[in-house]
Every structure is written in C-alpha cells, then in structure tokens.
Design a protein around this nucleic acid. Structure first.
Lengths: 190, 190
DNA sequence: TTCTTTACTGAATAAATATTCCATTAAATT
DNA sequence: AATTTAATGGAATATTTATTCAGTAAAGAA
C-alpha cells in the first residue's frame, strides 16, 4: 500500500505561508492552498481535518521553532549586555529572515482562528525575556520598571523596525542592527 | 417622503467597531452588523454599496480623526521635549481611549480589504512625526539615526505598551505615561 | 386625509468557500 | 504479477455569507 507522505505536510505549510505573505490570512482559502501546493483539496483533508486545524497546527509549529531560534546562543555566563545584544540581533535577524513565518503568526494572533491552546502558547512567549530582564535588574543595569512595560517596548519597537525594513526592501546591515540595539539599550538601561 | 437618516451611518459604524473589537475583522459579516445595529441587512446597502466599501469608508474616517487627535496641542513655540511628551501622551491616551477604533484600523491594515486610497492614507501617517524629529535633530537633541528607524521605535513601542495595558485591564495612570515616555525619550535622545 | 415617494426589512438568491466522496492511482505485500 | 490497501485529485455537495428584491412602512406634499 501507499503510505502518507510526511513531506506533504511541509508542502502544505509552505504553500500556506506563501499565500498569507502575498494575500493576507483574510484571503486564505483551501482551493488556493491546494493549487499553490499542487495537491488536490481532498489530499489536504487527509492531513488536516479542517482549515482551522491546519492554521492552528502551523501556528504552533512556527511559534515553538521561532522562540528556540530567538534564544539560541544566549549564555548565563556571558555579561548581561552581551546577552541582550545577542537577543535583539537574533530577534531582528530571525524576523527578517523568516518574515513570512512571523507574518503568519502575527496575522493568526489577530484572527478568530486560534484555539485555546494556541492562544496560551502565544501568551507564554514573554517568559524567557522576563527572566533575562530580572537578571538585568539584579545587576542594577536595567530600569526599575515593570517587566511587561520593558518587554513591550523592546518587542514592539523591534517588530515595527523590521516591518519598515521589509517594506522598504532595506537589507539587514550590521549598522542597522547596531542602531536598533542602541535605541533599545538606551531605553531600558538604568 | 421619508429621508435617509444620517445617523444610521454612525449606527452602522459603531456596530462594526464593537463587532470587530469583540470578534476580530476576520469574523465580521453583514448579518452580524445588521443585527448589532438593529437594522435590516438591506438598509446597510442603502448606505454602502458593499461590505468592502463600508470597511474602507470607516477606515478612512477613523484614520483622519485619530491623526488629528494625536497631534492636537503641539506647538512650534513649545520646547521640543515638551512637544514630544505631549505627543507620546496623546498617542497612548488616544489609543487606550479609542481602543476599538485603533484596533479596527490595525486589523484593516493587515487585511485584503483596503483599496489603493486607504493604503495611501495609511502610508502618510508618519509625515508629521518625521517633521518633529527633524526639529529635534536640528536642536541636537535627537540621535542622528534615520527617521524611519526612530519613528518605528516610538510607534511600535507605544502600540505594544497599549496592547499590554488593555489586555491586563490596567488603567492608564500618569505613572504609566511617564514611564512610557522615559523609555521612549532615553531611546531617541542624543 | 390621500397620494407619492423613498427608506426599510428580512426572506430569497447568488456567490464564495469549506468539506466530502469516490473513481483512480500508487505503493507495499504475497 | 496479482492482490490488497490506502492515498490522491478534483468534481460534487454542503455551508456560509454577501447581495438583491418585493412587499411594507414612514414621511412629506397636495
């Protein structure tokens, strides 16, 4: 007998990401996914039981993958500021490099598609950043301001910086990353 | 004869804003708007020729209104930092006070609904901020970094701060506004 | 008050889109 | 090579949602 092809899921995911990048989540439909992935619509339903499940499944996969990448290379032994620079670099670089993934995640977060579990995952994404900020406060390097505020400032700023970068087809230079970090660091430093 | 009631448009707009605030733009439909506004579906088509026109029309109205409010009370005679504080205060206060309006605008910007004109309006919203930042640079108060980067940092940060504020049902205190401005000012100041 | 005109309603229709179904195809097993 | 089993494609169907339309109600004019 023929076995389900594990690569097809990736094909479907990749097609979905391209479609959302080019036409927004609001315009996504199953016929388009089938066409883009060069698969029959029925095939998609062999891998996902509904459009909602497909979207949630991709969302959860991306959310985990992206979080891992963002915190890669941080070390408790390195000085706080070095870790912070690494984090901001990772964050911006990842967001540009995997733009369509982040764009999809963002669109999902603002949609009615996500289930309870996906929403919970989305909430927890700040946990590791809060831990890092606490260390900065212990070392008297970071302003004594609520972590939620500090994190919002960093993340909001970085996201918008990347959006501009993408919209203007501006390549991601070392200079850009350094300037972005300068803004971020001056903001949060005590 | 009976005359078209100009208040109905406002009724429809208000219903749309409530629905999008509670259920996202992705779930918005004409039947729901009719029900929420206590109007027949056909009535809505007396005021707008399609769902798309309704959305674009509301988007354009809000975009102009919100921009005016944000720059209200700024004066070329006041010191740069005072204007900047006023701007950030206005921006955050407005975003919290008229959250459903901003939320709608944001969801539209990430949808396939907007027409050419609406997209153009959305682009120009940074113009006045750029002028203000140029003044800050002339007075050697602001870092010599591309306006687009500075603006992205300010706006992105402020938006995310407000989102947190709303999500946590945190009231908008003077303290919060001062801390938000402190982060913002330290970031951009030379 | 009656007539005329236009707005209003919401059920009926059209259009878009999700999901199912089955004939066909392809891989594994014998 | 024949048989079996499951995956595949895409037309057919179901569902959802936008739009229209015919009957009704309301406001102004005569």
């Amino acid at each position: 007998m023929k076995l389900k092809d594990p690569e097809k899921v990736e094909l479907i995911f990749a097609a979905t990401l391209r479609l959302v990048r080019d036409n927004n989540l609001t315009a996504l439909n199953m016929a388009a996914i089938g066409k883009e992935a060069k698969l029959g619509m029925g095939t998609i339903y062999g891998y996902f039981k509904s459009k909602d499940e497909l979207i949630n499944s991709l969302f959860k996969k991306l959310k985990g993958k992206n979080l891992d990448r963002i915190y890669a290379g941080l070390s408790p032994d390195a000085p706080f500021k070095v870790n912070m620079k690494k984090l901001v670099d990772n964050y911006i670089d990842n967001r540009v490099r995997y733009f369509s993934e982040h764009y999809f995640v963002e669109q999902c977060a603002n949609s009615h598609f996500l289930d309870e579990e996906a929403r919970a995952i989305n909430q927890n994404s700040y946990t590791r950043l809060f831990e890092l900020l606490n260390r900065g406060k212990n070392e008297l390097l970071v302003k004594d301001i609520d972590n939620a505020l500090l994190a919002a400032h960093m993340v909001g700023s970085a996201n918008e910086l990347v959006n501009i970068c993408i919209a203007a087809h501006r390549p991601l230079t070392r200079d850009f990353l350094d300037q972005a970090f300068l803004l971020c660091w001056d903001a949060i430093k005590r």
